[in-house]
Nucleic acid binder design. Structure first.
Lengths: 254, 254
DNA sequence: CTACACCTTAACGTAACGTTAATGTCAAGA
DNA sequence: TCTTGACATTAACGTTACGTTAAGGTGTAG
């Protein structure tokens, strides 16, 4: 089979510009050029294009792809491993970025006050103390001393990355909740996602997850104005919306 | 205080070109320009530059930064949340990419044969069966029926993302091992990292981690030619190197 | 007076195409 | 045969956030 640019482009799901560009940089030359100057591609070129697109999917640069497929004995596995290392590096960077953005959002919302990296450890400890001071008594009454102790112990023993994962979840709960409220329906997929995220977040504080307790906690958020003030920052009524979503999610009502 | 381009650049850790560019696109104009055409920056510009760099650190584009800091009542928190969503999307893409690269590497090394996504579930089950068939007896003898059952059960119950995380670790063990062998020293940081990665990988197969068992397993790798063949694919002697690294890592000798 | 470090603008280069613009070609219907 | 419309071509600018020369003016210390 022979193909013109557009035929091949359509088949491969790329633009004709891409094919011309690949010709221009010499990574994929047409089998021949007809009398009127049209590019004509054959089966070999189809295969080659597929190879190119495969590596492109993996995020390899055209230059590297060229090296891979032109050199006959190029070690594609070690090239991929190199690429793999780069990707892991990139993800590390991205994770760092995400956690910084999250901290900034949290700080802007007044949930935390933070700047100095060295204060991180002290900050964690401070949060425990503050949490204990503010809500310790009520939580103690409702869930018993042991639960409070375990929660605090878990918090103190959390690694930095655990802590960041938790912060991340906290931000995501708020964001998803904000989105979900636009639907107005606590049973909507988005609202259920918010409930699910809240469950995940909770798992950092509770030794064991329990649907009924989750439902009760959601009700407590509504009853206690400090919690209400916190979640309603998303939008007035957000706390009740979250409670309803969690009640649907858990199948329990407090 | 007043600063020329280079002074400010050095202070902020950017290039002079960057400052000129920021002037050019109007995101940061100097306080004034002296008689000879030099850019002179004042304290207000210093602050503004810090703001710019802050957002830049977060990966926000200059265009968006301009919008953020020029509009007086721009909602920077919701801008950040938007950006956060984009970053999460990006990370998802990146994760997908990484797992695809890993699968490709695994396939190239002949460890798995795979192409069709729909065969994924069946493939997982197949691996359990194969594992059981090949090594079940030996493992049973050394670690008892219960351990084997638990391992298989865990494996079957693994979510797709768990499975991918495990595959990822497997690839990383091999890669780190290859790097570590260049040092020739099983106590080197890189070799110890390989041992640590191996421990993490193991945690997907063992119900509980145990240093002594880890050390024993490493010895078994050396004794059993099938395992040796697997790890020696990195380089001849890699299995022994890994064992030594693990023995140092665990503080046990088998 | 001479170095030498500093400043300026101008303009090309980067990666991988997208997007016009201006123009030539092919197949089919009137 | 003529026209129409879909297709082809090359050329060249636009994208992002600067890096990198190039060619030349300025400030100051010795």
């Amino acid at each position: 089979m022979e193909y013109t640019v557009q035929k091949l482009a359509k088949m491969a799901g790329v633009s004709t510009r891409t094919l011309r560009y690949y010709h221009e940089v010499g990574i994929l030359k047409p089998a021949r050029i007809n009398t009127t100057g049209y590019r004509i591609y054959g089966p070999k070129e189809v295969d080659r294009l597929q190879q190119i697109l495969f590596f492109r999917e993996l995020g390899v640069s055209l230059e590297d792809i060229k090296a891979i497929i032109t050199s006959p004995n190029f070690d594609s596995v070690s090239a991929l491993k190199d690429h793999h290392r780069k990707l892991l590096e990139k993800r590390k960077q991205l994770d760092l970025l995400i956690s910084n953005v999250e901290k900034t959002i949290a700080a802007s919302e007044g949930r935390i006050i933070m700047n100095d990296k060295e204060k991180f450890e002290g900050f964690k400890k401070m949060l425990v103390d503050e949490n204990e001071q503010k809500y310790g008594k009520e939580i103690r009454e409702k869930y018993g001393d042991e639960a409070v102790e375990k929660s605090n112990e878990r918090f103190r023993n959390m690694s930095k990355s655990d802590y960041e994962a938790m912060t991340s979840l906290g931000v995501q709960v708020m964001e998803t909740l904000a989105e979900a409220m636009k639907t107005g329906d606590p049973s909507s997929p988005l609202a259920q996602k918010a409930a699910e995220l809240h469950r995940q977040w909770l798992s950092y504080h509770w030794p064991e997850y329990n649907k009924e307790a989750h439902a009760n906690l959601a009700q407590m958020y509504v009853d206690d104005e400090r919690f209400t003030a916190y979640y309603d920052r998303v939008q007035p009524g957000a706390t009740k919306f979250l409670r309803d979503a969690i009640h649907i999610y858990t199948g329990f009502k407090a």
